[in-house]
Simulated scan of single mutants.
Amino acid sequence: MEALFTSTALVALAEIGDKTQLLAIVLATRFKRPWPIIAGIFVATIANHFLAALAGSQVAALLDGLWFRYLVAGSFIAMALWTLVPDKLDDVEDKPARFGAFLTTVVAFFLVEMGDKTQIATVALGARFHDVIAVTMGTTIGMMIANVPAVFLGQALIRRVPLGVVRMIAAGLFLVIGLWLLAQTAGWL
């Protein structure tokens, strides 16, 4: 349960103001059909985050040494710093979509999520918890918590949510987990 709850909380907070959340708003504005967009986000996130959690878990299983645990702790601390940097969505073209709201969302979300901080966090969570299913479920729930309101409320939500505060909270969570893993690996706990 710890893997599920931690994954959900971290990704839900890290996703606020992230480029995939901005993409959700752009798609909702373009298509004006929320349910196919939400379904597309769900499918793309499950596929992307399952692969990321699996990669993290497998790498951790292969490299389960002391230095690797320090690397995982360091990656959470690095994620804390990265979370403080606001994202911009500058890769979305304003041309008509050929494949409809659902397929466009699946492809766009899967590709935009590649190398994104929530995907990297999913790799680190997979390495930390060694539970691909719980991490995938948690990160997917976190993405849905952050993106479903963005699809329905769009620009009004972005104007009202203090993104700086949310980024600070998310960064604090990443930092606490990283420092906790560091202290645990060093034998301080």
Rank of each mutant, 00 (worst) to 15 (best):
V112P: 02
T83F: 08
R30D: 05
E15T: 12
V106A: 01
L89W: 10
A186H: 03
V151F: 00
G138E: 12
V123E: 10
G74N: 04
L84E: 06
G17W: 07
V132H: 07
K95L: 10
A186Q: 11
R69C: 02
A60I: 02
Q184W: 02
V123L: 15
F5N: 00
I38D: 01
I177W: 04
D90V: 04
F99T: 03
I169A: 15
D87C: 00
I38F: 01
L189A: 08
M168I: 14
I41E: 03
S57A: 15
R159D: 15
V165H: 08
G40D: 07
W35Y: 12
V11Y: 03
L89A: 05
V11K: 09
A55V: 15
I120T: 13
G164F: 14
T185C: 08
L71G: 10
M168V: 15
E15D: 12
A80K: 07
L89V: 04
F102L: 14
I145T: 02
T136K: 04
F31H: 11
A28R: 09
L4D: 00
F129A: 06
V135A: 13
I46P: 07
T105C: 00
V72Y: 13
T105Y: 01
G138S: 10
G164K: 14
L125Q: 13
H130Y: 08
V72T: 11
A183G: 09
M114Y: 14
A55Y: 08
G164R: 14
F129W: 12
P149Y: 05
V106M: 05
R159Q: 14
L89Y: 11
F42L: 15
F129N: 05
Q58E: 15
R167A: 15
G172N: 04
A101P: 10
A9C: 04
D116E: 11
V59F: 06
S57I: 01
A78P: 01
L51H: 03
V161D: 12
V26C: 08
I41T: 01
T136Q: 03
W82H: 11
F102C: 00
T20K: 09
K117C: 01
A80L: 04
M144W: 02
T185I: 07
L51S: 13
L103V: 11
G164C: 11
W188H: 05
V106L: 12
G74S: 05
L125Y: 11
W82T: 11
I169T: 12
Q58W: 14
T118H: 06
L157E: 13
A97P: 00
L173N: 10
F50N: 02
G138Q: 10
V166T: 15
R33Y: 00
E113K: 03
A170P: 13
S7D: 10
A28G: 15
L66D: 09
V135K: 05
G142A: 02
V135H: 11
G100E: 08
L182A: 14
A39Y: 00
F5V: 13
R160S: 14
T45D: 03
M1I: 00
T140P: 06
I25E: 13
M143E: 13
F42E: 06
F31D: 06
M1H: 05
L125S: 14
G172P: 07
I37N: 05
Q21P: 06
A24L: 07
A39L: 14
Q155I: 09
A60D: 01
W35P: 05
